[in-house]
Amino acid sequence: MSDEKLPVVKADEGHGAVEVAEPIADPGIEPHEYRITDIDPKAADRVERQVSAMFTLAGVLALGSCVAYFAIPRDSVFEFGPLSGNANNMAIGLCIGLALFLIGAGAIQWAKKLMVDEEISEDRHPAHSSPEQIQDITEAFKQGAAESGFGRRTLIRRGLFTGLGLLGLPAVVLLRDLGPLPGRTLYHTIWAKGIRVVNDVTARPIKPADMIVGQLVNAIPANLPPLQEESAVEYQNARAKAAVIVVRIRPTEIRTKPGRENWGIDGILCYSKICTHVGCPISLYEQTTHHVLCPCHQSTFDLADSAKVVFGPAARPLPQLPLAVDSEGYLVAQSDFTEPVGPSFFERG
């Protein structure tokens, strides 16, 4: 830094620049250069024809868009090389787009080629008010303030501030019914003891023997599909928490967490599908490493190791659902998840 080499300016001078004589005097605005259209009437007429042609063509295209609207069936398809799409849509859009463009291009051509192009100069004035104005306004304000007695009558002033201030409260309180309080809703899903694990497309229950090693199935609780008939919202909300993935891994490759020894069935493990980062459904499974990756932010979880995070922004493993087999041999849940599923929240602990 060679700042000490520079001359300095005093802070109270109020600016960081010094006024030294300009090295070169302002020569004034450059002389105006005439355009071909200023000199040659033929050139000017040619531009006039161009501009008028653009405007007229715009009108024709505007009509064309109306013709296209009625004449082209709405389901016809246009295909030409890489360009393909709904023909009706394209024709209307092309006509309107070109018409608009031509109006604009015509106007700009007119301005650039035919309108007088001599630059003119206008003086600026400082943004602030003049001293007389400042004096007048200050006096008027003081007079009004004195006439109101606002400064003197403190009771009125305090009352006004209190009243206005408290009016902010209803503005907030009235919004209370925007939503219910969270309560314990985030801690539970519709999984419960004995609820069957069913395929999320076919809704068929799953037997351990149906799954081969390396397979991953997207699943939901058996009590989810009936909810759809009752209430679409309840169904979506329940699905947002209850979606799971069931995976079968060679038992020798699994590193079981203490306390979870009986949560799997012959290497079949069940985890929440909802990412613990911001709640996207994790969906990319790599069989050889038993990693799943969330496509939203690339958090990667190792399903063979209690779904612990191996990479990415997520901080917690995917919650695991303890599995059992019911009397008919289908996979069921031993209980609900033992911790809240999905993204973290403050009260979670």
Binding site: N89, M90, G93, I96, G97, L98, A99, L100
Partner: peptide, 16 residues
């Protein structure tokens, strides 16, 4: 004119 140019170009983008 430039308004029409911008509108025209967005319309062409919307079409194509």
């Amino acid at each position: 004119g430039f308004f029409f140019v911008v509108f025209g170009i967005t319309a062409l983008m919307g079409a194509l």
